[in-house]
């Protein structure tokens, strides 16, 4: 079974940066917002809603096609795997991704979401979720019943309802 990150409820974002801190701390051993693979942006200060910029796991990734060195290969479940050894920092992939989800780190290596599942564990507001997908990256259709109410009984309503509910595990 393959999984990928999904920005499920963008409008619920409170701009806490917990996801960015978690990604940077997990993959770059750093305390900062730097090199987080997800980027929380403000378009008009905190007066306007936040946007979450992150790889959305293309089924046929243009970034991969754009890479002249073959540093990017298809990931099971959509998106790409990066071979850091090969990447020379040309930045072609950055151009190819309309999401703006790629940047280069200080060593001039591409920084792209691995769909590892850490950041959703640090999102207090159910903005980020891991979803199950086909190995190809196609979204699996599992729910066919009526859409759930977004009421206080919904599991995605507020972290109050998560107390004692689904466990937010230790980051790996």
């Amino acid at each position: 079974m393959a999984r990928r990150l999904k920005v499920a409820n963008p409008a619920r974002c409170i701009g806490c940066y917990s996801c960015m801190m978690a990604c940077a701390r997990t993959w770059y051993d750093t305390i900062s917002l730097k090199n987080s693979r997800i980027d929380i942006q403000t378009r008009g200060g905190i007066e306007t809603p936040y946007t979450q910029i992150v790889c959305h796991a293309c089924i046929d990734p243009p970034c991969m096609r754009a890479c002249p060195l073959g540093a990017l290969t298809k990931r099971k479940g959509g998106g790409v795997n990066l071979n850091k050894e090969i990447c020379d920092g040309c930045g072609n992939c950055i151009e190819a991704c309309l999401m703006g989800a790629i940047h280069l780190d200080a060593e001039k290596k591409a920084v792209i979401c691995k769909h590892c599942g850490v950041c959703p564990k640090f999102c207090p507001h159910d903005v980020l979720e891991m979803i199950e997908v086909e190995d190809s990256g196609e979204v699996k259709i599992t729910d066919t019943g009526p859409a759930p109410e977004t009421s206080p009984v919904s599991s995605t309503a507020s972290h109050k309802d998560l107390y004692g509910g689904k466990e937010l595990g230790e980051e790996k």
Binding site: G15, C16, I46, P124
Partner: peptide, 9 residues
């Protein structure tokens, strides 16, 4: 909304 770095909001 939250202060930067606070999950309380």
């Amino acid at each position: 909304v939250s202060c930067a770095g606070c999950p309380i909001g």
